[in-house]
Computed example of a mutant assay.
Amino acid sequence: MTEAELYTFYKGIFLPVYFHTSQSLKYFEKFSFQPDDIIIASYPKSGTTWMQEIVPLIVSGGDPASVETLPNWDRVPWLEENRIGILNIHKRPSPRMFTTHIQYNMIPPSFFEVKPRVINVMRNPKDVFTSYFYYSEMSSNWVSPGSQFLHKFLDGKVAYGSWFDHVKSWLNAEDKEHIMYISYEEMIMDLKDTVARIAQFLQKFLDAEVIEKIADRCLFKNMKKNNMSNYKSVPREQLDQTKSEFLRKGIVGDWKNQLTVEEAEYFDAVYKDKMKDVQYKFVWE
């Protein structure tokens, strides 16, 4: 199916209409944040599900019930998706936890007034592209990749718009003291250190043993076993995991198995041009 059939056009970007109704987007635009809310902000396929496992475990002090009793889309729901309006968010105890794939400049006005804490997760865009490719093949709600997918991705003509625009919007955010920037690659390199730094940012003072238990539980191979996180409960007609598992590999550098040398060189040239004014030092560079 085509973009016209599967996507809605919202403020210059495509959003899958199955998840983003006009009603849910209106709810999103009027959303009232609280100062102690925790927001996971990421471009798709950048480590969102991983962070939806880590953050609740930190907040709960390592209690596994926090990730075993609710699917990730309900335990840390997307602010802009259609389920947000039926979850009685206003009744949830503080700190409330949310996820968003929306760019910084599209966040509701309340966000800029109360300045909740944000964990912004980024990932090498070539690995994002690769993961995005496989997810697009398995999801009935996203347009299938097709032969021109690389160009569509680099031009931002895919669901949730341009990776470049998304990443730069959050890097250029004002009041950065309430935003933690972290990469998928850092999580791979030293997950225990990542958990400790996130806990410190969230002002959750956990002892070393708890940090280690959380990190162990959140190793990709262990998280993959959690049926509240591996999307196994999603019907096959929506997410066909016979084509590819939702939690597929959880590695760095898989783009080398996806892109040809010529495609990788073209990707690098576009990246160099679009990111030339960005001062932030990425782990993958």
Rank of each mutant, 00 (worst) to 15 (best):
E186C: 09
I179K: 06
S147T: 12
L202I: 05
V261R: 12
Q34M: 11
S60E: 05
E3C: 11
I119Q: 01
S139K: 03
F282H: 04
F129R: 01
R96P: 01
G146C: 08
N105T: 13
D74P: 00
R75C: 07
D190K: 12
H20K: 07
I214Y: 05
D74W: 06
V118L: 08
E174M: 09
T242V: 03
E53A: 02
G250R: 10
I39V: 15
A65T: 15
T49V: 14
M106D: 15
V143G: 10
Y181K: 07
V59C: 12
S66F: 01
T21V: 07
G47M: 06
P44L: 07
E29L: 11
N227R: 08
A4Q: 14
L171I: 08
F112Q: 12
G12L: 09
P44G: 10
M275I: 09
D36P: 00
L57Q: 01
I13Y: 01
D36C: 02
H178P: 04
Y27M: 05
G146R: 06
L87W: 08
M106E: 13
M138H: 00
E185Y: 08
K126D: 01
T99G: 04
S46A: 14
F153C: 07
F267D: 06
Q148T: 15
F246R: 02
A41M: 03
S229H: 15
D207H: 13
